[in-house]
Structure formats: structure tokens, C-alpha cells
Design a protein around this nucleic acid. Structure first.
Lengths: 230, 230
DNA sequence: GATATTCAATCAATCGTTTGACTAAAGCAA
DNA sequence: TTGCTTTAGTCAAACGATTGATTGAATATC
């Protein structure tokens, strides 16, 4: 009786999608076999063709399923934040940016969906297929736009300013690296997993870095080649 | 007559490795077939088993080959920089850090080897195999250690300080995101590839951000739970 | 009884690997 | 030098296993 968006999905479809998300999120597309999926989902091999038209269709449906699952935890929150920012003075935007990024950090490091989503997202980033279009429209773009909007408000610039976009991208980068490069960081710290203490230290430091970036003056480096409009 | 390290490789081995690097660097392991490799390398199918013991052996050899190729451009440079830093006042370390990271940026965005390396590295980060050990020891660790060493010198801390390590990790993150997430950024900027102008703007901004991070005071956030030793 | 779904069986294609014959160069005793 | 053996490397052909997909009958649901 579970319904997701407009598509009313059968129990078998739902089971296939959850299993597929786990599989595709942690292993390569070609490394995941259809037989392995249907076995874990307790379905028949032909269920994939029947419900999704094939393995490829299942993969695309999984990506859509992923964005829908992330809606409550992430995407919806974005609009709220953007509204809050519009109703508050620009100086408050900095706090909102930090809060959102740190919430995002916890999500991808400790959240359940954060275990599977990055694998798919980073694969599609590296070699985009039509699945990337889904991710961009439903997930990456909303996040990027909202972040740029907040930064622009704080720095009193246009959200479409390339400099603002690049700054947003940078801040995302210094966040997701703790998921992408967690293997390396944990090895450097002689740890096997992110514990509470490390997480707190991480968040405290990152907040400082976010603020440092937001307040960084670009004038010092602009003086050489750029003519400043302001 | 090409010799790499201690292993004297036949022409066939060399051809297989270059082809394999290109293939494994841009596509998934299981998506790359042995037949496709030997065809592109103009070798026989059994050459893989003969020279590398199988597909898996070829992959591991490719990773080693990758680290060796990066030695002249990256790894060797690290030791030089570390030496230069030791012979200069701590304040100069900031400039060295920026120069190295920006050089690294250019390398992964425009360099030839930068086309193939990230694909392998990020895959091994997400799902480490024994190939990750090679990458960590020969590439990731040297870079991480050197960067932490420079930062520690600049901020007058211990290189083993977790806070320094995390800062190094953050700076790496805000650099590599422009390779990992380039598809998203380029789409945001309405571009199809990194051009000269964008590269210059990128480097100028990132330099500012590096310096902002290096000079960011952690005291403001430390006052709650931490006791500062200095 | 009409529709929707599941099932076991089977399909051709491709996978990585192995085989044994073949070539060419090197080693070596005469 | 000559003749023989050894070794390294290449080659086409075939191996069994697994892949995604399809079939048509069986079953469930309304």
C-alpha cells in the first residue's frame, strides 16, 4: 500500500527498488546482476523486465526513487531555508548556510540514504548518462541554486554571478570530501569509522571554514587583472 | 626500450598498460572487457593472462603503473616543496600550499594523466580493494602528509594534530571537487569544458579561499568545549 | 472470466580463462 | 660455424560460466 509520487508501486516493485538502490549505490552497474537483485528482493527474474522493461530501466527507476526518497530529508528543506533567508536580514544567511551544509554532512556521513546515494551520484558525475539528468534536475541543481542564492544574499551579489557559483561549488566540495575521501581520512586518523567525537570536531571546524570563505575578500587577488564593478 | 622502475616491460606489456589505464580510468571495471583491451593494444587475448596473470592482475598493474607515471609530475614535487618549506620562514608556507594545490588543480583538470587517474582513485575510495593500498601508499598518503606538514608549519602546530589533518583534507576537497563535480559546475556555468578564462577565475578564487582557511581562527568555535594549549 | 503478476525454463551473447600449436630468438655443445 | 634444445612470446580456437532477456504456462486478483 506504499505510494510514491504519482506512480503507485506494487510491493514487488518497491522491494526491487530498495534492493537495487543498495546494490547500485555500493557497486558498479555491471557488477550488479539482475539475478542477484531479484534473489535479494525475493522476486522472479522476469519481474525486472515486466515492471521496469529491463536492467537499465530498473537503474533509471532506482535513481528516480532515490531522488524521491531524498525529498523529505533534503530537497524540501531547501525551499524552507530559502524562504527563511528571504525573511531575514542578509547577515543571517551565513548561519543558514552553515546549518544546511552541516546537516547535509551528517546526512551523507551517517544517514541511511547517505550510504547509497553518493555512490550513484559520483558515478554519474564521472560518466554522465541519462540518469545524471534526473539527479541534476531533482537534486543537484536545487541544492546548488539554493546555496548560491544564500551566498549571493550574504555577499550582496547576484546569484548568477560565476564567482558566487564557484564559491558554492567550493563549499560543497569541502563538505562532500569527507564522504568521498573518507577512506583516506579515516586511515590518516587511524580510525575505522566516523565516531561521535570526530563528527563534532569535524562540524566545528567546517563551520569555521564556511564562515572564513563567506567573509573572504576577493579584492586582494582581484587587483591585478580585474576591474571591480562595485 | 622503455623501462619503468625495476620492472623491465615488454612492448606488449606497455601497450596493454596504457590502454588499460585509459579504459579503467574512464569506465567501470566490469564494463571493460579483456577482449576490448587486447584489441586496442593490438595484442592477443592470452597476453593478459601471460603477462599479468589475468584481468585482475592487469588492473592492479595498471594502478601501479599509474602511480609511477604520476611520480615525475606529482610525487617527486612533494618532497621538493617540503624541503623548500623547511628552509623558509613559516609564513612562506602559505604560498607553497597555494602553489601546490593550484598546480594539482591544473593537473587533474587539464593534464593528460588527470583524465584517467581520478576515475580509478575515486572508485577505490568508494569501494577500496587492494588497489587502494597501492594508491594510498604511493600517492594519497605522501600528498596528505606533505600538505599537513606545511599547514602545521604555518599554523605552528603538530603535523599529527587531527585538526591539521582535517584542514588538509578540507583543502584537498575544495580542490578536487572541480574535477569530481565538474559536470555539475559546467552545467551551472553553461559551459561544456573548462576554458582558460574559467581556469584563471577558478585559481584566483581558490587561492583566496586557501588563504582564508589557513588564517581562519578556530578559537571562536573552540571556546565552548575545547581547552586551547597555546 | 478477464486482467495482472509470477514462475521455471530456456535463449543467444558475452564474459574471463585455458589450451596447444606455432614462431623467433637465445643458449650451448660439438 | 653447425645443429639441437630451451625459452619467451604470440596466436586462433575453444572452454565453462554467467550475463540480460524472453517465453509460455501457471497462478493470483478483482
Amino acid at each position: 500500500m506504499v505510494k510514491t509520487e504519482a506512480s503507485s508501486q506494487s510491493a514487488t516493485q518497491e522491494r526491487l527498488l530498495t534492493v537495487a538502490l543498495k546494490a547500485f549505490g555500493s557497486r558498479d552497474y555491471d557488477d550488479v546482476s539482475t539475478r542477484e537483485i531479484v534473489q535479494a528482493a525475493e522476486a522472479n527474474i522476469s519481474a525486472i523486465s515486466y515492471h521496469f522493461g529491463g536492467k537499465r530501466g530498473l537503474y533509471l527507476a532506482t535513481v528516480t526513487y532515490l531522488t524521491e526518497q531524498l525529498k523529505t530529508g533534503m530537497t524540501n528543506r531547501l525551499e524552507e531555508i530559502r524562504q527563511t533567508a528571504n525573511d531575514s536580514p542578509p547577515e543571517r544567511s551565513a548561519g543558514l548556510i552553515c546549518d544546511f551544509l552541516l546537516h547535509f554532512l551528517e546526512h551523507i556521513l551517517l544517514g541511511e540514504m547517505g550510504q547509497h546515494a553518493p555512490g550513484i551520484i559520483f558515478r554519474e558525475q564521472n560518466r554522465p548518462t541519462e540518469a545524471y539528468d534526473i539527479l541534476y534536475e531533482k537534486l543537484l541543481a536545487p541544492m546548488h541554486f539554493t546555496l548560491a542564492s544564500l551566498i549571493a544574499r550574504y555577499r550582496k551579489r547576484e546569484p548568477s554571478d560565476p564567482e558566487i557559483i564557484i564559491m558554492a561549488h567550493t563549499m560543497i566540495g569541502q563538505t562532500v570530501i569527507f564522504r568521498i575521501g573518507r577512506t583516506t581520512l579515516l586511515r590518516r586518523l587511524n580510525q575505522t569509522a566516523y565516531n561521535r567525537a570526530t563528527m563534532e570536531a569535524l562540524k566545528r571546524q567546517l563551520r569555521t571554514y564556511y564562515l572564513a570563505l563567506l567573509d573572504a575578500s576577493t579584492d586582494a587577488t582581484e587587483m591585478e587583472t580585474r576591474d571591480h564593478a562595485e
